[in-house]
Simulated assay, not measured.
Amino acid sequence: MVASPTYPVQLIQPDGRRVHSPEYSALVSDIGPERLREMYRDLVVVRRLDTEATALQRQGELGLWAPLTGQEAAQVGSAHALAPDDYIFTSYREHGVAWCRGVDPADMTRMWRGCAHSGWDPATVNMTNPAIVVGSQGLHATGYAMGAKLDDADIATVAYLGDGATSQGDVSEALGFAVSWGVGVVFFCQNNHWAISAPTHIQSPVPLAQRAAGFGMPAVQVDGNDVLAVLAVTRRAARHARDGAGPFFVEALTYRMGPHTTSDDPTRYRTDADLDEWRARDPIERVRKLLERESLADDEFLAEVQDAADTAATRLRSGTLALPDPEPLGMFDHVYTTEHPLIEGERADYTGYLASFATQKEAGR
């Protein structure tokens, strides 16, 4: 079933009023006041982490960062829908998902600072590290889900991707393979409307959810700035995968408020009017207004949330600045699980190159 592209699933309006959905409201009926406050806390913390990491890059402490501001609800809502043994294949912008899975903020910047090939141990949180090759994680997730099916594991495998990734051949191959073999992959597409500077409408003449339906899998379009709607839709998709019913595609309509990465200048391809429209749909303000409508957010609670966000940001900053410079030869470690002649040859060549500096220094004396 494909939700109408004109009416994506929505459970909270931008002004904080609830929306009743006969199909999806029941899927979040267990979300009481404390759980709603917990999700609001995560939304605020995630934005604060993103702000801090962006500042670190601007200060020369990170080589690059991929901001997520504006996409918090899509990430927090979907992450809260998943079980601990579900496995996540990420792209490069899912810092919010990482936070919700329990990744230490101090580990989030290791790769972006250039200190390591990766940031955290995937086995500890069942989530891979950022994937820079656009769309490749779709095939990885499909292969993992195939293994889970052969092992009779009742889990959902989730592949996070952006709208731009749906234009990659890897994603089309993953969609086709997942349907053909009936594997339990949830393809979670954060349609933030920009593939760097290319708007979605020039990538596809139809909603991306309809693209997935063309492969023969169920697909739903959801308001990606509505954390409860995203939670409900992702719960449905994950249950579909765990039940052995095959893959499911979710298109979360959201907006990237910042640059594609910190090397991008979005003012070259979009207007202030675009931003104003989406600022009115801010995912954090939406939940805050809901909490205030239902008398769940007083000054004390809001101050506690801000303290939690600042503490997490401090952890990210201090952890980043404390990262040691890597050993030069460390770049050849963990490339393959076993020794590889090409890598070993490159290691030997680079070892000789480094040694030449010591020789030159001695000669200069």
Rank of each mutant, 00 (worst) to 15 (best):
H140N: 14
L49I: 10
L56A: 06
M111E: 13
R47E: 06
V44S: 08
A81F: 06
D121H: 11
R110C: 10
Q75F: 05
A165K: 01
C100L: 13
G60D: 05
F89D: 02
S136G: 11
D86R: 11
V45N: 04
D86Q: 09
H117N: 12
S136P: 06
T128I: 03
T69G: 09
Y160N: 04
S118Q: 15
A106R: 10
L56P: 00
D107M: 15
G102D: 02
E72G: 11
Q59K: 13
L68E: 00
L139V: 15
L62Y: 08
S78E: 05
R101T: 01
K149T: 10
V103H: 07
E94D: 08
A165T: 06
V97S: 04
G138I: 04
I132K: 03
V97C: 08
R48S: 13
A55E: 09
L62H: 05
L139W: 08
Y92I: 09
Y144W: 15
V103I: 14
A106Y: 09
T90G: 00
A55V: 08
T128K: 09
L139H: 10
C115V: 14
R93W: 08
G135M: 01
I155C: 01
V46N: 04
V45Y: 03
A98H: 01
W99A: 05
A83K: 14
T109P: 05
T90V: 14
K149V: 07
A165G: 04
R101N: 07
D85G: 04
V134W: 05
R93F: 11
N129V: 03
T90E: 00
E72V: 10
M108P: 07
P67Q: 12
D50R: 10
A131K: 06
Q137E: 11
V44D: 09
A123E: 14
A165V: 01
A74C: 14
G70S: 13
